[in-house]
């Protein structure tokens, strides 16, 4: 399973991406503030963080549902936010697809399953005839584990898991290379979550898909992701290979998050020490100066309030933004 990392091709590159929403006169909600990361071709990149930390906004900005305030997103070498002709945009829309969080809101209640799945086929004129369109829809339905009799039914006749599979079929209809999964399993119950995750993994193996998997379920992210990024209040705090991140978390926030995962081992659980964070997440309209996490960080010192931490590669493929590991500021901490 080990591939040569040096030869891996960066499929998605996000450089200094910012997305600010205007919320009032001279007030901006900094949903995503200077985030950089990259995703290799064919891997699953997990993006975790608390509610409201900007995970979904990052996903939606990457796919151009929102226009970026600053920064750039390169997908397969193409700048997403640059001015584009209709044809170039359509090309991008074929390459990148999205699976949404709420299976009850993501399907148009007035359309049959067939029309929902065929939407991409219609928009991109993929099918030559009505028959080919139908055949494609049936094939997609079977790919996601539904059967062709379901094609003429309406979304309200399906369960949450089935609806999510319809949403996946819709995304697959245009043969994408990169799929952004925006919390695709958060709204499902646990037994169905496994079904959907297994389906996603199967599809990745068969079609060589690249995933950006947004979630807040840490153990599920560990299971599905090759690399994981942790976000806090619009900033990326740490990115590393999944195992490396879980075994060796560097950032205090990541450490606190990981300490919250229960382990099915009573002996271990008895001695497990949770790092309890004090206070609440500050408002993204008025974020703290310097390091965003300093108000809740157990190690915070004055320098954290003055200087924004640099985004540095501490170990091979392990990026972190924290003064604790910055040679210049290390001396300020007595750990």
């Amino acid at each position: 399973m080990t591939t040569q990392k040096n030869e891996r091709q960066k499929y998605v590159e996000v450089n200094n991406l910012k997305k600010h929403f205007k919320v009032g006169r001279n007030a901006y909600l900094r949903a995503v503030d200077d985030v950089s990361f990259y995703i290799y071709k064919g891997e699953t990149f997990g993006l975790v963080g608390e509610s409201g930390c900007g995970k979904s906004t990052t996903g939606r900005t990457i796919i151009r549902l929102y226009d970026a305030t600053a920064g750039e997103v390169l997908i397969d070498g193409v700048n997403v936010h640059a001015k584009k002709s209709r044809a170039e945009l359509k090309d991008l829309n074929k390459k990148v697809q999205m699976i949404f969080q709420d299976p009850y809101a993501s399907l148009n209640p007035r359309m049959t399953v067939k029309d929902i799945i065929a939407e991409g086929i219609d928009v991109h004129n993929i099918a030559k005839s009505k028959k080919e369109r139908d055949e494609r829809v049936y094939h997609l339905l079977e790919t996601v584990g539904l059967n062709r009799e379901h094609a003429n039914r309406y979304p309200h006749e399906f369960s949450g898991g089935q609806r999510q599979r319809i949403g996946i079929a819709r995304a697959l209809a245009v043969d994408p290379e990169f799929i952004i999964c925006d919390e695709p399993i958060s709204a499902l119950d646990v037994s169905i979550q496994a079904q959907v995750v297994n389906l996603l993994e199967k599809l990745q193996k068969e079609r060589g898909l690249t995933y950006l998997f947004i979630a807040h379920d840490l153990s599920m992210v560990k299971h599905i992701s090759d690399r994981v990024g942790v976000m806090y209040l619009g900033k990326m705090t740490e990115v590393a290979e999944s195992d490396e991140l879980y075994d060796n978390p560097l950032h205090p926030y990541t450490q606190a998050l990981l300490s919250a995962i229960p382990v099915p081992d009573p002996d271990y659980e008895r001695t497990r020490e949770r790092i309890i964070l004090e206070g609440d997440v500050p408002s993204p309209v008025n974020p703290p100066s310097g390091c965003r996490f300093r108000t809740r960080c157990p190690f915070a010192t004055e320098v954290c309030a003055q200087v924004t931490p640099r985004w540095t590669e501490q170990r091979k493929d392990h990026w972190v933004a924290c003064h604790l590991y910055d040679d210049e500021y290390k001396g300020n901490f007595n750990r």
């Binding site: 990148v96 809101a105 993501s106 939407e119």
Partner: peptide, 19 residues
């Protein structure tokens, strides 16, 4: 989300409005 989904598929405004 179903409108966003349609937009990520590349639908025109006209299609989103009418469909």
């Amino acid at each position: 989300e179903f409108v966003l989904a349609s937009r990520t598929l590349g639908s025109s405004d006209q299609r989103i409005i009418w469909k």
